[in-house]
Design a binder for these strands. Structure first.
Lengths: 338, 338
DNA sequence: GGCATAAATGTTAACGTTTTCATCATAATG
DNA sequence: CATTATGATGAAAACGTTAACATTTATGCC
């Protein structure tokens, strides 16, 4: 293993000079720098990060913590987030991935081990972890879940706007009996999407009907179960907004089983726009949320916070966009007359 | 930041003793050890891994490298793999995740930075990376892709057996015109699954028909395109084996569009058994492969290799299992007479 | 050409551990 | 009781780097 001292010897300078040259210090003569750079390259020098980190008191590591790897809410999540994060993360940062729930002693979440934290959070249960990390003084940004506490940097999607867009779309298409299958209780995103849904209904002059609020938990099965309840209603809804695509798929399955045709007999709107949404039968109209975008912006924010501790603490929310496919029927015309 | 010297002072011993006590050295009196452990806990001591690693020449880090984060072949892959890996990985190992293609200088893949490598590989293009890491002397195991080189530790699924099971199942159900939509060219798994398919046909006395071999690339779209080709044939197949579930979904879409009913007019078999396979319309019969299992076993193998450099280099292959759902029609009876 | 200043390089200590080797106390041995 | 082995602890060095401070060399100015 070759060190800067070896390079120093080869170059006939002190190891300090080598260190400076390799780190781009301004007080090294260009000639010297080039010479040293060349020698280092020739010798295949690779810096020892342990030594480096020891003296600089950095860890060179960003930790990505996930609400729960085990009961992975949605699988494409991680991949998309990772894509976004990697796009804005310098290659020589290490990025570690762990589940919050698998951290059994918070000790290991320590400023010495992480220069910064990206926390992909889903529910308030993660707060203990978040506040621990904050108390430990590690720069962090919470992704994906909207926080109430303005002292914590936060990047999430505009769930409420998304829910609203879904409801408004249903109304615009002439639907009047519009139901919702809600996300997991206690998850902020579930609250927001529901509230957006209500807002949208109200904005179009429709009163939300308590009968049409079905509880789900973001899982496929919960979507199916909730839809079964909805289908059993005397006055079936004509459109159902599912608070994520997984539940929409479950809901579709309930319809397949009962021979309820989509969108002729029932319209469906999802949320997330995961890859398969375009390939369900029929293709699912859904609200697109960019997890990669959240990852990207979150990382940029984190980097800023790490660089200067006085960087502003931002709460940024990324827009959602309704993508129309074929799971919503156009009832206009009929509805006028009904 | 508190160090072992602080603990030493508090305990009235030398920092060497503290180090030994905390690391479970046999030459510390039990009483001393407990006393020190207590003080360390009280002071919230957290070891400085940079210092530790500097002197032990370890990195405490396992690197998980992925063929390609960008064009993520299948999104649940990463999550499943991570689950398996984490199950068998001691919590105080750091696990970093990167894409092979995003590593632009192989320099950073160095024994100093990684104690071991888990390489989730898809194609031979990863070989450069693999052999670089091997040459650098980092213990590694290649996951998910079967390797020809017996000098490299390897854990993958029995793709060939899986392909064979699919073909045999189709035959057993009375199908005679059986097609395949192949995986991406150059991917070992694609070759293996195709070969297994051929083996299965042959074992049941059916001759593979070149007309029924359609090329795909594991993407949804390629599945759809390939299926369209197959549907245009004069003598349509009655069953199609898709080399992964994504392509099966694409294939289903082609059928939906043309009004071809599954399984009545066409039977479909997938591969992977991803989460959504049970929720397609109809539910997809497919070959289950345990990515988590591969991750788990691969990690265990890696740990063994890291511990003792003379540990045996194993190539382990994990069984696949056909899971029967509703996308394959039973043609027995008819086929006898035809 | 001498002097002040700036630019470039070198010396040394420090970061927090583990490890080698030395020392001291204690127990076992005859 | 002296001697030896052994069990427990300590002192000092080492790991590879950066940083504070010191020194040398080059540059500009009158």
């Amino acid at each position: 293993m070759i060190t800067i001292k070896d390079i120093a010897k080869a170059a006939g300078v002190s190891h300090t000079t080598v260190s400076r040259a390799l780190n781009g210090s301004a007080l090294i003569k260009p000639g010297t720098r080039e010479k040293i750079a060349k020698i280092a390259a020739d010798m295949n020098y690779v810096p020892n990060y342990s030594a480096k980190n020891l003296v600089t008191k950095k860890s060179n590591t960003i930790g990505l913590f996930f609400s729960s790897l085990e009961q992975g809410t949605s699988s494409s999540f991680l991949v998309d987030a990772l894509k976004g994060i990697r796009q804005s993360l310098n290659e020589n940062y290490m990025l570690t991935v762990s589940g919050i729930d698998e951290v059994d002693s918070y000790e290991s979440v320590h400023p010495r081990r992480f220069d910064g934290l990206l926390i992909m959070s889903q529910s308030e249960r993660d707060n203990r972890f978040i506040y621990h990390a904050k108390a430990a003084g590690i720069p962090l940004v919470v992704l994906n879940r909207q926080l109430d506490d303005p002292s914590i940097p936060n990047v999430a999607s505009e769930d409420r706007r998304g829910g609203r867009a879904a409801a408004e779309h249903a109304c615009e298409m002439g639907h009047r009996r519009i139901a919702i299958i809600e996300g997991r209780q206690g998850f902020k995103s579930a609250d927001e999407r529901r509230q957006g849904f209500i807002d949208g209904l109200l904005a179009r002059g429709r009163a939300p009907d308590p009968l049409y609020f079905a509880q789900g938990d973001y899982s496929i099965e919960s979507g199916r179960a909730a839809m079964e309840g909805l289908l059993a209603l005397n006055d079936r809804p004509t459109a159902v907004f599912c608070c994520n695509d997984d539940m929409a798929i479950g809901a579709m399955n309930a319809c397949y089983e009962r021979g309820v045709r989509i969108p002729d007999e029932l319209s469906l709107i999802g949320f997330d726009d995961m890859m398969f949404a375009a390939y369900t039968n029929p293709p699912l109209t859904t609200v697109r949320k960019s997890v990669a975008g959240i990852g990207r912006e979150g990382t940029e924010l984190l980097l800023r916070l790490m660089e200067r501790s006085d960087a502003p603490i931002e709460q940024r929310f990324i827009g959602c966009e309704l993508v129309r496919r074929e799971s919503v029927a156009d009832l206009r015309g009929q509805s006028r007359r009904s």
